[in-house]
Measured scan of single mutants.
Amino acid sequence: ALNRGDKVRIKRTESYWYGDVGTVASVEKSGILYPVIVRFDRVNYNGFSGSASGVNTNNFAENELELVQAAA
């Protein structure tokens, strides 16, 4: 299972961040479909780089994520 702070690569092909590595911000335990919230260094097309207006978190299912580096 994934944990907060883990570095993960995104495998959801239609995602803006496909192939990117993000950090797990939190994992919901309530049984929702996309329980893993991942935070990225770059914002998506809703904002400009360096601006706070873009979105830099997204929810994924565990099977859409590949663990790159476990949290220390």
Rank of each mutant, 00 (worst) to 15 (best):
V24G: 01
E28W: 06
R42W: 06
A52V: 10
N59I: 05
Y34L: 10
G31D: 12
G47H: 11
G5I: 00
A61G: 09
G19F: 10
Q69F: 09
N63Y: 14
Y34P: 05
A52M: 09
A71C: 13
R4S: 08
L33D: 12
N3W: 08
V68G: 00
R39T: 08
A70Q: 10
L67I: 07
I37T: 13
N3Q: 13
I10F: 02
S30H: 09
E64Y: 02
T23E: 12
S49G: 12
E62K: 06
E28T: 08
V55I: 13
S15Y: 02
L2H: 02
R9Y: 06
V43Y: 15
R42P: 04
G50F: 07
N46S: 09
L65Y: 01
R42E: 07
V55C: 15
F60G: 01
N59D: 05
V68R: 04
A71R: 06
V27Q: 02
R9G: 03
A1C: 14
T13A: 12
V24C: 04
N56I: 07
L2D: 00
A25I: 15
P35K: 13
R12T: 06
V38L: 00
V8F: 03
K29V: 09
A25L: 15
V55M: 08
Y16Q: 05
N63P: 05
L2R: 01
Y34S: 04
K7E: 04
K29R: 13
L33K: 11
R12N: 11
E66Q: 06
K29L: 11
G47S: 09
N3S: 12
A52K: 08
D20P: 01
A1W: 13
K29F: 07
I37Y: 06
Y45P: 15
V38Y: 00
N56S: 07
G22I: 03
N63Q: 09
L65N: 04
S53V: 13
G54Q: 04
V21I: 13
R4P: 12
A71H: 10
V36N: 01
D41N: 08
Y16W: 08
G5V: 03
K29Y: 09
N59M: 11
A52R: 03
Y16A: 05
L65Q: 01
V24A: 00
G54R: 04
E62S: 08
D41E: 14
E14N: 13
L67T: 02
Y16S: 05
V36T: 00
N58V: 09
V43F: 15
N59E: 06
N56P: 04
L67D: 00
D41H: 13
F48Q: 14
A61M: 10
T23D: 03
A61P: 00
G19R: 05
V24Y: 00
Y34M: 08
T57I: 11
A1G: 11
E14W: 14
A25K: 07
G5K: 03
S30G: 11
G31S: 11
L33I: 07
E28R: 10
D6N: 03
Y16V: 05
L65T: 12
Y18P: 00
P35L: 14
P35Q: 13
D20F: 09
S15T: 02
N56A: 06
W17I: 01
V43E: 08
T13P: 13
N56E: 06
S51C: 15
A1S: 12
V36I: 14
G5R: 03
T23A: 03
Q69K: 08
E62N: 06
S26K: 13
N46Y: 09
V38P: 00
D41V: 11
T57M: 10
A72W: 13
S51P: 11
S26D: 11
Y34E: 05
S49W: 08
R39L: 14
N3G: 12
R42C: 12
N58C: 15
V27H: 08
E64S: 00
S30L: 07
G19I: 04
Y18E: 03
N44W: 15
G5W: 04
S30T: 14
Y18K: 02
V68H: 02
G47F: 07
L2T: 02
Y16T: 03
Y45L: 15
A71G: 08
T23G: 00
S30Y: 08
N56V: 06
L67E: 01
T23V: 11
N56R: 08
N46G: 09
V36K: 00
R39C: 14
V43C: 15
E14M: 10
K29G: 12
K29C: 11
V27R: 02
V43A: 06
K11W: 14
E28D: 13
